Amino acid sequence: MVSQVVKAIDQLAEVHEQLIQTGLAKKQAILSKELDELMRLMRIESKLSREITEMDQERSLVSRKLMMDKGVKNRFNVTYRNLMGVIHDPEERTELQRVHERLERAIVQLKQVNDLNQTLLQQSLDFIAFTIDLYLNPEDESYTYKHPASPTGDPKNKSGLYNTRA
């Protein structure tokens, strides 16, 4: 029964590692502004996320069965600590610890990759908003030099090539 829990956690870690690879590819797509590739990677991410949900349900079910087999009844949220408390074989404990640490490392790395991608996307959106503001908002000339004695906003005093009196 412990081998089933180990297998379920190992599979979860594997899918998390696939998500990490997808996240790194997403980073490249964001940096190179490849929207089609980014959309494709987001679909893959969505599929992998659904797989994780299903696998986690399976892990939870197998973990509850193990706890019941060990005499612990009615455990809905079985944690790693709970499992380690009922597993006494040193080899099984070592194997469970190994896959748990693998999964934990993958989750931490995935969070870092996702945070970086979120920051990159936010910077891209900020840049787009800034660019749109530059094009759509009237030009602010307060940053250019004007002689203090020159009138502002007086259309008669504008110098130009076209003479309206002629």
Rank of each mutant, 00 (worst) to 15 (best):
35 L>V: 14
159 S>Y: 09
135 Y>S: 05
95 E>H: 12
90 P>M: 10
23 G>N: 04
153 G>K: 12
35 L>A: 13
75 R>H: 07
159 S>E: 11
116 L>T: 14
48 L>W: 04
156 K>P: 02
154 D>I: 09
132 I>H: 01
48 L>H: 08
162 Y>W: 11
14 E>Y: 13
50 R>I: 10
73 K>G: 00
117 N>F: 07
144 T>Y: 11
135 Y>L: 12
32 S>A: 02
31 L>I: 15
67 M>P: 07
83 L>Q: 00
163 N>G: 06
126 D>L: 09
134 L>M: 15
78 V>Y: 06
147 H>K: 15
122 Q>I: 04
80 Y>G: 01
21 Q>R: 07
3 S>D: 11
91 E>D: 09
52 I>S: 03
52 I>H: 01
21 Q>G: 06
117 N>D: 08
40 R>I: 03
29 A>D: 08
129 A>D: 15
74 N>T: 12
145 Y>H: 08
73 K>W: 03
83 L>S: 02
78 V>F: 09
122 Q>E: 15
68 M>S: 10
87 I>P: 03
141 E>N: 13
70 K>T: 08
23 G>P: 01
114 N>Q: 08
10 D>H: 10
38 L>P: 00
134 L>Q: 13
78 V>P: 05
110 L>D: 03
28 Q>G: 02
40 R>E: 12
85 G>F: 07
125 L>M: 14
155 P>M: 04
158 K>H: 11
34 E>D: 15
80 Y>E: 00
122 Q>D: 15
25 A>I: 05
109 Q>T: 15
135 Y>N: 09
16 H>Y: 12
82 N>C: 06
111 K>F: 07
76 F>I: 05
146 K>Q: 14
132 I>D: 01
24 L>R: 14
54 E>S: 01
8 A>E: 04
47 K>A: 09
122 Q>W: 04
43 R>A: 10
41 L>G: 01
37 E>W: 03
124 S>V: 05
26 K>R: 05
34 E>Y: 12
31 L>N: 11
163 N>A: 04
16 H>W: 07
111 K>A: 09
26 K>F: 11
132 I>V: 13
141 E>G: 08
13 A>W: 06
135 Y>E: 06
8 A>I: 04
62 V>Y: 06
116 L>E: 08
99 V>H: 00
94 T>V: 06
